[in-house]
Amino acid sequence: MIERRDVFQAIADPTRRKIISKLVQGPLNITQIGEDFGVSKQAIAKHIKILNECGIVSMSQKGREQICEAQLGSLDEVTNWVTESRKLWNQRFEKLDRFLNEIKK
């Protein structure tokens, strides 16, 4: 059984973020995905593999081509983490502001 990679690994790399952005437009094959990157098809395939293992990209066979499609539901984990982190830091900054205002008085 293959262990699922962490979704944060997918968005950690700028190339993978660009691939996700391309796939949001619609399904593409690996050659189409790699057109704008200036790297080998093998390098793009490695990025796609990581995205697939994270659950952000699904792959299907259409004739001789592998078609990749964005599955953005797993990015909810990132959204939730950012939302919770933002709340925490806002609370901390509000406490700091109150403290600084008190020592000014």
Rank of each mutant, 00 (worst) to 15 (best):
Ile2Asn: 07
Ile2Cys: 03
Glu3His: 06
Arg4Thr: 00
Arg5Ala: 12
Asp6Trp: 07
Val7Ala: 03
Val7Thr: 11
Phe8Gly: 01
Phe8Ser: 08
Phe8Asp: 02
Gln9Cys: 05
Gln9Ile: 10
Ala10Lys: 02
Ala10Leu: 12
Ala10Pro: 07
Ala12Arg: 12
Asp13Ser: 09
Asp13Met: 07
Asp13Cys: 10
Asp13His: 15
Pro14Glu: 07
Pro14Met: 02
Pro14Ile: 08
Thr15Ser: 07
Thr15Lys: 07
Lys18Thr: 04
Ile19Gly: 01
Ile19His: 00
Ile19Asp: 00
Ile20Asn: 03
Ile20Cys: 06
Ser21Gly: 14
Lys22Tyr: 04
Leu23Cys: 09
Leu23Tyr: 06
Leu23Lys: 03
Gln25Val: 15
Gly26Ile: 12
Gly26Arg: 14
Pro27Trp: 02
Pro27Gly: 04
Leu28His: 01
Leu28Ile: 00
Leu28Asn: 00
Asn29His: 06
Ile30Gly: 13
Thr31Asn: 08
Thr31Leu: 05
Gln32Phe: 04
Gly34Trp: 01
Glu35Thr: 12
Glu35Phe: 03
Asp36His: 06
Asp36Lys: 15
Val39Lys: 14
Val39Ile: 15
Val39Arg: 13
Ser40Leu: 07
Lys41Leu: 13
Lys41Tyr: 03
Lys41Trp: 04
Gln42Cys: 03
Ile44His: 00
Ala45Val: 03
Lys46Tyr: 10
Lys46Met: 12
Lys46Ala: 12
His47Cys: 09
Ile48Trp: 04
Ile48Arg: 07
Ile48Gln: 07
Ile50Asp: 10
Glu53Thr: 06
Cys54Asp: 05
Ile56Cys: 13
Ser58Cys: 10
Met59Cys: 09
Met59Leu: 15
Met59Trp: 01
Ser60Thr: 15
Ser60Lys: 15
Ser60Ile: 06
Gln61Ser: 08
Lys62Tyr: 05
Gly63Asn: 10
Arg64Tyr: 13
Glu65Ser: 10
Glu65Pro: 00
Gln66Asp: 08
Ile67His: 04
Ile67Leu: 10
Cys68Lys: 04
Cys68Leu: 09
Glu69Arg: 14
Glu69Lys: 15
Ala70His: 06
Ala70Lys: 02
Gln71Arg: 15
Gln71Leu: 12
Leu72Asp: 05
Gly73Leu: 02
Ser74Cys: 04
Ser74Thr: 13
Ser74His: 08
Leu75Val: 01
Asp76Lys: 06
Asp76Tyr: 08
Val78Phe: 04
Asn80Gln: 10
Trp81Leu: 11
Trp81Phe: 12
Trp81Ala: 14
Val82Phe: 11
Val82Ile: 15
Val82Lys: 02
Thr83Gln: 11
Thr83Ala: 13
Glu84Gly: 11
Ser85Arg: 11
Ser85His: 11
Arg86Glu: 01
Arg86Asn: 00
Leu88Lys: 14
Leu88Ala: 07
Trp89Tyr: 13
Trp89Gly: 01
Trp89Thr: 14
Trp89Lys: 09
Asn90Gly: 11
Asn90Ile: 12
Asn90Val: 13
Asn90Asp: 14
Gln91Leu: 05
Arg92Lys: 15
Phe93Pro: 01
Phe93Gln: 08
Phe93Gly: 01
Glu94Thr: 12
Glu94Pro: 00
Glu94His: 10
Glu94Arg: 14
Glu94Met: 07
Lys95Phe: 11
Lys95Trp: 14
Leu96Asn: 15
Arg98Ala: 11
Arg98Pro: 01
Asn101Pro: 02
Asn101Leu: 11
Asn101Arg: 14
Glu102Trp: 15
Glu102Leu: 13
Lys104Gly: 13
Lys104Arg: 14
Lys104Leu: 13
Lys105Ile: 10
Lys105Gly: 14
Lys105Pro: 12
